[in-house]
Design a protein around this nucleic acid. Structure first.
Lengths: 220, 220
DNA sequence: GCATCGTGTTACTTACCGGTAACACACATC
DNA sequence: GATGTGTGTTACCGGTAAGTAACACGATGC
């Protein structure tokens, strides 16, 4: 591994990015490169030398910008959170006041985003598998993020007036996480395609008049 | 799956396992140790030296039993499949002929197993995140396994008489994978607790007389 | 008695990894 | 022109990884 698709890749010396914008700093190039490589190949599979090299610089400059690889990872994860909530808010904003539409829009967006060829699931979710149990500075970022996802989904379920809002919210979280994970195994025609319909079913079920009562139709 | 809860664990040197059975071979000890370490810490985080040492032997004996670490990983994954289907069949067997009860039992078993302290989710699902894209011999094991999970769930959904069996099966797969993945972030009171109820809801929804029609109750 | 098999031991190679030291150079600003 | 800042370069450290060579030893079986 670490072959790595080579993005623009310059020869060796810097003096490449100067084109138009205010001369992208090394730090920014490194971070941007790290984001791509981490997402595509995983945290442990990508070394700092590979990142620096791919960013058109070297390891020394890397360590002038970041105290350690672990800290870069933590910062990467924090950045991913930010991006994630921007996406979330963008899905939800057009339907303010209609939590059901918000949930549906969220999952529609989720499906179409996660089915894209470039998707490799959820960076935060993937990271938790690669990070050693306790210590790593990235762990708490992940845990905090997933807790917030859970809380937001539960909150939307509450706003909808679901009979058991926490259960509905948690079920939706399961659906979402399952979608992310299966994206790595199945190609774009994976089970995630069913997520959008499932959400609607689940909401209906939680809104229906009686509590999932007797329609137990004993299979013919 | 794979109990993993640290079995006997000996001091350091071999000469331990001889107790009663026909003198457990080095290969078996290595494999057993690898199973535990891989599951607990991940594939990349565990080196062959660590495995050999923990098994009370050394790297040389390791390479006399296994051609390479990658091959060991592939074999580990194959073994995990076997264990998994044994567990699955054990859940389902008591309710032969009643696919709905089978699905419910499966998910009840899934929840209680995955909530155990020793659980670190699905070894196959975790592995897919750690394995480089194409080449690794373990990849096809994982893909084949996940495809079979999907197929079995769809089949059960079909037997139930679900209106859209493929959709139901896929949704259940999402739920399951989501449960495995969230297990790594949340402790035992995570969203997976909702999986058992969600299954029943989804089945009801797929069995209900009309297609999720009008009960659209616009949140009062 | 001899060969083979399974295993242990020590030592090694090659490669990579995260991280650092020391030095050089170009440019921008005062 | 001096100074400082940002950057590149070369070389290195200590650690660990996967994988191998050569040798030793005890048990088993012919």
């Amino acid at each position: 591994m670490s072959a790595i698709g080579s993005l623009e890749r310059s020869g060796s010396s810097g003096a490449v990015a100067a084109q138009v914008a205010p001369k992208r700093r090394v730090r920014d190039r490194i971070f941007e490169t790290a984001r791509q490589l981490f997402y595509r190949h995983g945290l442990r599979a990508v070394g700092v030398e590979a990142i620096a090299c791919e960013a058109g610089t070297n390891k020394v400059s890397f360590y002038r910008s970041f105290p350690s690889k672990d800290e870069l990872i933590a910062e990467y994860l924090r950045d991913q959170c930010k991006v994630y909530w921007q996406w979330w808010d963008g899905c939800v904003a057009p339907y303010a006041g209609d939590p059901r539409r918000q949930l549906e829009a969220l999952f529609d967006g989720f499906v179409s985003l996660t089915c894209k060829d470039s998707s490799r699931g959820c960076s935060l979710g993937n990271a938790v598998i690669e990070l050693p149990e306790g210590s790593h500075p990235g762990r708490e970022v992940i845990e905090q993020h997933k807790s917030e996802m859970r809380e937001r989904l539960r909150s939307l379920a509450r706003q909808i007036g679901a009979r058991d809002a926490d259960e509905l919210g948690d079920t939706l979280l399961l659906l979402m996480e399952g979608g992310y994970l299966t994206r790595l195994t199945f190609s774009s025609d994976g089970p995630i395609r069913s997520a959008a319909k499932a959400v609607r079913r689940l909401i209906d079920s939680h809104l229906a008049p009686e509590p999932t009562a007797h329609p137990r139709k004993k299979r013919a």
